[in-house]
């Protein structure tokens, strides 16, 4: 064994502590969000969350049903994923298999740029451009609908899905492609019968990470989804998501009361949803040796 100088031991200690700190932060996030939701669990209990109405501000009959805002999140997420998958996946296939090197040089920065636009700016674009557009195209009274929010969220999910899917497709061993071409398959056949199936698990993981991003997005939905906590499956209705509920209502609550606490319960639900999605997606990516996101 090498004997080491004392500074060396200190350095090792400091770096290990820094790494442990990452674990500590995640631990503290779970602890604090869990702790603040205790009040609600004590006074109202889990059953109150199954109510079909979200009226937390009513003084006579406050209702804390998660279903309307959970439904809102699910509707917006479902639509956004539906819109984002074709663009993300087809874009990834194009970049990985079809695009010439100079095309990549153009396309990649745009994708990175899209990922870099702050969500409040995307939301603002929704308020001034996309919302009115949706209103006029569908002849609605207002452009603040689940559909508008979903379109904006799709924009934000595309870079995630595209980048990770592209990695997955690039990771398909070239021997597979060569074998396919040697058997007389065309480029198109090779792409859809060999590359995409071989990269499918990575693409699925990419979509899951995209969904995780969409579920947790706050500002754009807060600004354009309409803010109405109703149970609906109609994309033309205004809805309220879980994230938007926390953002919109936290400013008006008294610290420590039931309403304050239930917003942390909503946070717990969000945290568990995104954690599960990310955990499974990372497992899949790791298993197939793809680049970590």
């Amino acid at each position: 064994m090498r004997t080491s100088h004392w500074t060396d031991k200190v350095a090792r200690l400091v770096f290990t502590a820094a790494a442990a700190n990452a674990i500590l932060i995640v631990f503290l996030i779970f602890v604090f969000i869990g702790a603040e939701s205790r009040t609600f669990m004590g006074t109202e209990g889990l059953g109150a969350l199954l109510d079909t109405q979200w009226v937390p501000t009513s003084e006579i009959d406050a209702r804390y049903g998660l279903l309307p805002i959970l439904g809102g999140s699910l509707l917006v997420t479902f639509l956004a994923t539906l819109f984002a998958i074709p663009f993300g996946v087809i874009g990834a296939i194009y970049l990985a298999e079809v695009a010439k090197p100079w095309e990549r040089e153009i396309l990649k920065p745009f994708v990175e740029m899209l990922a870099g636009i702050p969500s409040v700016v995307v939301g603002f674009f929704g308020v001034v451009v996309l919302g009115p557009m949706v209103r006029d195209v569908f002849g609605l009274n207002t452009g603040f609908t689940a559909l508008t929010a979903a379109l904006l969220l799709a924009l934000m999910a595309v870079p995630t899905i595209l980048t990770i899917s592209e990695d997955a497709i690039r990771n398909v061993p070239s021997a597979y492609k060569q074998a396919s071409v040697a058997l007389g398959a065309s480029r198109l056949q090779t792409i859809f019968k060999v590359c995409v199936p071989a990269a499918l698990s990575g693409i699925v993981a990419a979509v899951m990470l995209g969904i995780g991003r969409v579920v947790g997005e706050t500002m754009a939905v807060l600004m354009v989804a309409g803010g109405r906590p109703v149970i609906t499956a109609n994309p033309m209705d205004g809805v309220r998501t879980m994230t938007a509920t926390i953002a919109a209502e936290m400013g008006d609550v008294a610290v420590g009361d039931t309403h304050y606490s239930v917003l942390f319960v909503v946070g717990v639900v969000l945290l568990l949803m995104t954690f599960t999605l990310n955990f499974i997606a990372q497992r899949v990516l790791k298993k197939y040796g793809y680049h970590q996101a």
Binding site: I23, I29, F32, A35, S119, G212, T218, T243, I246, L277
Partner: peptide, 20 residues
């Protein structure tokens, strides 16, 4: 922990910051 942290929604970071 790092990948979990990367996936935590920003509003949940807000709740955490508010609590802590």
């Amino acid at each position: 922990a790092i990948t979990t942290l990367a996936g935590v929604p920003s509003i949940v970071f807000g709740l955490f910051g508010l609590g802590l």
